[in-house]
C-alpha cells in the first residue's frame, strides 16, 4: 500500500509531459528543413496517423525521419532513466548507472566487432544486434562471476565484478581497434551515443525488449522498494530477496542492452535523472519510477533537438549534449543539496 497524497508527483509529471510535448513539436518542425507550425504541419501529422502519407518530400522527412527519431528519443530516455533508478536501488549505490556492471563495455565490444570486421553493412541491424548480444553476454558474465552461490555482500561483489569485466572487455576492444585503426571512425561515433540515422527499424527492434523489461521493473517496484532497505530487512518484511534480485538484474540488463543497442552510449541520463527524481520526491520507487520515465523522455527529446539543431547542419552526438547539459546540472544539485 501507499498513501495517496502524491500531488507533488502529479505536478512534476505534468511539467515533464508539457516539456515533452513542446520538445516534440519543436523536434518535428526544426531542422535543416524547417516546417512552420501551421495548418500544413497538422495536416501532415494527420495524414501520417491515418497511414496515407506519400513517403516523398516533406512528408518523408517528417514521417520517416523525425517522427521515429522523436519516438526513439522518448523511449531511450525513459528506458535509460528507469534502468538507472533500478540499478541504483539494486546496488544500493548512488553512483550506479545503467552502464556500471559491464553492459556498456559488452555493447561496445559487440558493436566494435561489427564495425571493425565489416559486419556493419551486412544487415541494417547488424550493429545493434551485435551490441545487444554483447551487452547481455557481459552482464550475464558479471552476474555469474559476481554473485554465483555467494549470499553476502552481493552488491559489492556485483560492482567489483562489473568493473573488472568492463576493464577486460575495454582492453579487448582496444586491441581490435589497434588492429583495424582504419575502420574505427564510425565506431567512435557510435560510442559517443547518437540517434542520427535511426528510424522505424530501430524503433521496432527496441520496442519488444523495452516493453517487456519495463513491465517487469514496474511490477517489481514494491519489492525493489524493500530490497533497497537491505537484504535482511527486506526479507523480514516478506520480500524474497534472491529471486527478486535475480529477476530485476535480468530485466534491468535487458532494458539497458536494448537501449544501448539502438542508441550507443548516451551518458548521464541514467545517472542524473534518478537522482533528480529522488531529490524531488523521496525514495519510494512507485513514485520515482514513473516520474523518472517521464523526465528521462523529456530530457532526451530536448537533448536530441539540441544535438540536431545547435550546430546545424553538423550534428553533435546526443551523448555529448547530455553530458554537457547533465554534468553542470548534476553539480548544481550536488552543491545545493550540500547546503
Amino acid at each position: 500500500m501507499f498513501f495517496a497524497d502524491s500531488s507533488r508527483a502529479m505536478v512534476v509529471c505534468c511539467v515533464a509531459l508539457v516539456v515533452w510535448a513542446l520538445g516534440a513539436c519543436a523536434s518535428l518542425c526544426f531542422g535543416v528543413v524547417a516546417i512552420p507550425l501551421d495548418g500544413v504541419f497538422w495536416g501532415l501529422l494527420w495524414k501520417g496517423l491515418r497511414g496515407t502519407h506519400s513517403g516523398v518530400g516533406i512528408e518523408a522527412i517528417v514521417w520517416d525521419v523525425r517522427v521515429p527519431r522523436l519516438l526513439l528519443a522518448t523511449l531511450v530516455g525513459a528506458g535509460l532513466s528507469v534502468a538507472g533508478v533500478t540499478w541504483q536501488a539494486l546496488l544500493r549505490n548512488p553512483l550506479a548507472d545503467p552502464y556500471l556492471i559491464g553492459t556498456s563495455a559488452g555493447a561496445a565490444l559487440g558493436a566494435g566487432i561489427a564495425f571493425l570486421f565489416g559486419f556493419a553493412g551486412v544487415f541494417a541491424w547488424s550493429v545493434s544486434a551485435m551490441a545487444f548480444s554483447g551487452a547481455l553476454g557481459a552482464t550475464a558474465l558479471v552476474y555469474r562471476l559476481g554473485i554465483g552461490p555467494a549470499s553476502t555482500q552481493v552488491t559489492e561483489r556485483l560492482i567489483l565484478a562489473g568493473v573488472a569485466v568492463s576493464a577486460f572487455l575495454g582492453a579487448a576492444l582496444s586491441v581490435l581497434v589497434a588492429v583495424r585503426t582504419d575502420a574505427a571512425a564510425p565506431l567512435y561515433l557510435w560510442l559517443m551515443g547518437s540517434l542520427l540515422g535511426r528510424g522505424w527499424a530501430e524503433l521496432y527492434q527496441l520496442l519488444p525488449p523495452l516493453v517487456l523489461s519495463l513491465a517487469v521493473v514496474f511490477w517489481f517496484a514494491p519489492r525493489l522498494n524493500l530490497l533497497q532497505l537491505g537484504d535482511e530487512l527486506a526479507f523480514g518484511l516478506g520480500c524474497n530477496v534472491v529471486s527478486t534480485r535475480r529477476t530485476l538484474v535480468m530485466a534491468a540488463s535487458l532494458l539497458t542492452a536494448a537501449v544501448v543497442a539502438v542508441s550507443g552510449m548516451i551518458g548521464f541520463v541514467g545517472l542524473v535523472v534518478p537522482h533528480w527524481c529522488r531529490l524531488l520526491l523521496g525514495p519510494d520507487l512507485r513514485v520515482v519510477l514513473p516520474l523518472a520515465a517521464c523526465l528521462g523522455a523529456s530530457l532526451l527529446v530536448v537533448a536530441d533537438l539540441c544535438a540536431r539543431t545547435l550546430l546545424m547542419p553538423t550534428e553533435i552526438p546526443v551523448g555529448v549534449v547530455t553530458a554537457l547539459m547533465g554534468a553542470p546540472f548534476f553539480l548544481s544539485l550536488l552543491v545545493r543539496s550540500g547546503r
Partner: peptide
C-alpha cells in the same frame, strides 16, 4: 511504516485499504 504492510497487501501499487 506503510512498507510493513507489504506481507498483507493485495496490490502494492494501489493506495492502502
Amino acid at each position: 511504516i506503510a512498507l510493513g504492510r507489504y506481507p498483507h497487501a493485495a496490490n502494492d501499487w494501489l493506495p492502502g485499504r
